[in-house]
Design a protein around this nucleic acid. Sequence first.
DNA 1: TGCATTTTACTACATATGTAGTATTATGAG
DNA 2: CTCATAATACTACATATGTAGTAAAATGCA
Lengths: 130, 130
Amino acid sequence: MAKKRTTPRLSPGEMEVLQMLWQHGPVTLSEAQAKLGREIGYTTIQTRLNRLVEKKLVARSAERPAQYSAAIEPAEVSAGHLALLVKRTGGGSVVPLVAHLVRDWALSAEEIAELKQLLAEAERQSKKKS
Amino acid sequence: MAKKRTTPRLSPGEMEVLQMLWQHGPVTLSEAQAKLGREIGYTTIQTRLNRLVEKKLVARSAERPAQYSAAIEPAEVSAGHLALLVKRTGGGSVVPLVAHLVRDWALSAEEIAELKQLLAEAERQSKKKS
DNA sequence: TGCATTTTACTACATATGTAGTATTATGAG
DNA sequence: CTCATAATACTACATATGTAGTAAAATGCA
């Protein structure tokens, strides 16, 4: 397994860009601006992307109208953030966090089912390991 | 219900201080430094606390050796962060996030039980509401 | 081939954050 | 009451981040 380079701290703005890249695949600068749309300057996005590229979190293709694509998985990012949250606000336990998640977001029946599934798996793992 | 003042963005350093305050109750500056311990300057913590106080996230008592205490709940903070994470890395669904939590942290049998409990409740809510 | 347009690179600057020194004020011992 | 010590306030400064202008380079069309 590859090195676990602790996600180099993502700023809000960087997150915003990454999210955009995760949703809409690789994009050019102009497309990026269109997607992020909003009242944000073209060069602003350019700068953000450049910085992300420096940090190896985004890859830029060699073609002329370069394609920018996320070089990190959403999972990796959330994992890092969650680890921090668990430690900080959960006192080390995931339960308070999950409690929040299931309480504050009205889960659909399907989602609840999925989560039950996950728990069941976790339980099996737990048993097997002990 | 009170205003939902979107947690004013907590920087890593601020989180660190808040965490300390949540764990060990109200503390004075010196105690704070002791707890955070580390090789961090006294005045550095002072500055961090001051900034936190400005942002109303920490309260300072009037007594002489002032007592600093968190003025925000861990839950509030995690709620804000999670909301962002869900939207950004989960594409709007909590499932991927929870999946991560239960997979990456080896949950104890008790924790799993608690979570099942939570899901059961969520299910009841869901049913009642629909 | 020359210019208009698009793309990319550089540069700039304000605010935020991390860190900490120095000055000032309050407090307690003698 | 005076001074040493603890506590608090101010000030400073480097790096990070958000935002964007301008210059330079590549492209495409006339």
